[in-house]
Structures are given as structure tokens and as C-alpha cells.
């Protein structure tokens, strides 16, 4: 299958590698503003399927130059929601361009591990069966297991929340907290995710799959994961607001507020990222919340 990988995100290289291993004919294109326009046209013309790896915070700005049309099938690999509009990235594509057949890729695809040749796994979500089937055929190989889901909203939400939770775990590790706090963050984070998912119409089962639990467990164990490192940097007060994990945390907090969903953990991470509290104050605040019967 002819596939294009568009954008210069951290996933571009490992994804291209896995697609090639699966037998796809891959062409990767840089989408930075100084890349020649004919590259875009060539990329679109080439592909039966397009993987977009432009980082979430830059996707909205990149779309107009992409000229996606009715004939295209697009898999978004970066994480949303878009902070300015609150739209999921797949929605951004289907609302801002004429391309309707969209999907998302998520799961524990660590660039370093793919590079080392370790087995990998991913999940492709789309409401379109045809998009799921093509993307699975393009990527599935003995090196990379590919699962599919029709719960696009759930996969996008899980994958974003996984970034935020990984950052939270990075922050707690940097503070020298133990495995107990890790367990606490993961389980309470999932509880927040379930509440948020329920409010936005996602299937809660999706969160315990590859896009949610699978990714948090993998990312928080990899010392070089971008979200984990961003979390560690929070303790030093060095948050980069353009870093994907930090941007999606802010967007998820906004989404929670709009849907009247209580998200104490994500809010705490966001407060640290925006300098409203130190990491220690945030952790103290979380631990001092009034005890609840039942726990949910």
C-alpha cells in the first residue's frame, strides 16, 4: 500500500520504519513552513493513506497548506484536543478540511524501542471500517501488532490523558515519591478519565486498552519518553507550554470544566505547569482532599 507520513514529529521516523517493515511503500514528508509546496502535492498524490505526525499544538496551523480533499484517508498520530478550539485533532481535520475519512493512531510506540527493534503495538480508531482496515493492513507486521476500534473519541481521549498522566508520574518520580504514588496516580487518573469519557460519549472500556493504560505503563517506564521528561521538568519549574503533554493537560482541564467534570489530578498538573503552584503544593493539595466513601 502507498502511504505518506506527513510532519516532522517524534513519531515520523519510527512509524515510517514500522510501515516499511509491514510492506507499505512509504514516503515521509516534512511539513515545516519552509518545506517546498510541491512536496505537499506529491505527498497527497502518492498516498492511499496519510499518517499525520505534526505535533498537536501545530496541527491547526498546518492544515490549510495541506489541501486535504474528499478522496483522502487520514490517520492523526498526535494528541489533542486543540487548545484554542477544544476540538479533537481528528475533528479539526474533518471540520477544517474537506477530508471526512479520518482516524487516530495511539498506543505505546516508543521511538527508542522501535529503533532498537523491540516488538511494538498500536491501536487505530476510526468510525470508518475501511479506514481501520487499510491502516491495519499498512502497519501490521510481526514487529508491530495493530488493533482497531470504532471508538475514535475514546482513543483520542485516552491517548491524550495518557500523556498527561505520564507527565504526572514523571513529576512524582522527580520528587522521589515511591511506587505507591505511581499506583495512586494511575488509578485515580483512570477514574478521572472515566468521568470525562462518560461526559463526552466515549466507551470506558477503551481506557483500559492500548491507548490508555497500555501507553501510560509503557511511557512512564521509559526514561526518555517526552511526556515523562516534561513531567520531571515541572519539578524544576521548567515547563514548556508547547510540549505536547503540557498542552494536552491544559486542553483536557478546559474540556472538563466545559463538561462540569471534576478532574483534581489533571488540574493539579496544569496548575504546576502554569506556575500557579509548586509541585509540592499540588501534591499536598491532592493528598489533603476530603476523604470520600466509595472512592469514585
Amino acid at each position: 500500500m502507498k502511504v505518506s507520513v506527513l510532519g516532522a514529529g517524534p513519531l515520523t521516523a519510527p512509524l515510517s520504519q514500522l510501515l516499511t517493515l509491514a510492506g507499505s511503500e512509504v514516503r515521509a514528508f516534512d511539513l515545516s513552513p519552509d518545506a517546498p509546496a510541491e512536496d505537499h502535492a506529491a505527498a497527497l498524490h502518492h498516498a492511499e493513506l496519510i499518517f499525520l505526525t505534526v505535533p498537536g499544538p501545530r496541527l491547526a496551523a498546518s492544515l490549510p497548506s495541506l489541501r486535504l480533499g474528499p478522496e483522502h484517508r487520514v490517520i492523526v498520530c498526535s494528541r489533542g484536543p486543540d487548545e484554542a478550539t477544544g476540538l479533537w485533532l481528528s475533528e479539526l481535520v474533518s471540520l477544517r478540511t474537506a477530508c471526512l475519512r479520518v482516524g487516530a493512531l495511539a498506543g505505546p510506540l516508543s521511538p527508542a524501542e522501535v529503533q532498537r527493534g523491540s516488538p511494538a503495538a498500536a491501536i487505530i480508531a476510526s468510525p470508518f471500517q475501511d479506514v481501520r482496515a487499510r491502516a491495519q493492513a499498512a502497519l501490521h507486521s510481526p514487529r508491530c501488532r495493530v488493533y482497531t476500534s470504532d471508538d475514535l473519541r475514546g482513543v483520542e481521549l485516552s491517548a491524550s490523558a495518557a500523556r498527561a498522566l505520564t507527565a504526572a508520574i514523571g513529576m512524582s518520580d522527580a520528587m522521589g515519591m515511591g511506587a505507591g504514588v505511581r499506583g495512586l496516580l494511575l488509578s485515580r487518573g483512570l477514574a478521572e478519565l472515566r468521568r470525562l469519557g462518560k461526559a463526552v460519549g466515549a466507551n470506558p472500556d477503551t481506557f483500559v486498552g492500548l491507548a490508555g493504560v497500555g501507553e501510560v505503563v509503557a511511557a512512564s517506564a521509559a526514561a526518555d519518553d517526552a511526556a515523562y521528561l516534561a513531567g520531571r521538568a515541572l519539578l524544576r519549574g521548567e515547563a514548556d507550554p508547547h510540549e505536547e503533554a503540557i498542552a494536552v493537560t491544559a486542553a483536557l482541564v478546559k474540556l472538563g470544566a466545559r463538561n462540569k467534570v471534576d478532574l483534581p489530578l489533571l488540574e493539579a498538573v496544569n496548575e504546576v505547569a502554569t506556575g500557579q503552584r509548586t509541585a509540592k503544593e499540588a501534591l499536598k493539595g491532592l493528598m489533603e482532599r476530603a476523604a470520600k466513601l466509595g472512592g469514585e
Binding site: 490549510p64 480533499g69 474528499p70 478522496e71 471540520l95 477544517r96 478540511t97 474537506a98 471526512l100
Partner: peptide
Amino acid sequence: LGPDGGVIDRRRY
């Protein structure tokens, strides 16, 4: 019409 107001070829869907 597409989201930018331009004409699109709907047959391609």
C-alpha cells in the same frame, strides 16, 4: 462546498 467555501468534488467521497 468545503469548509473554506471552495467547491469540492463530492464524487471523490
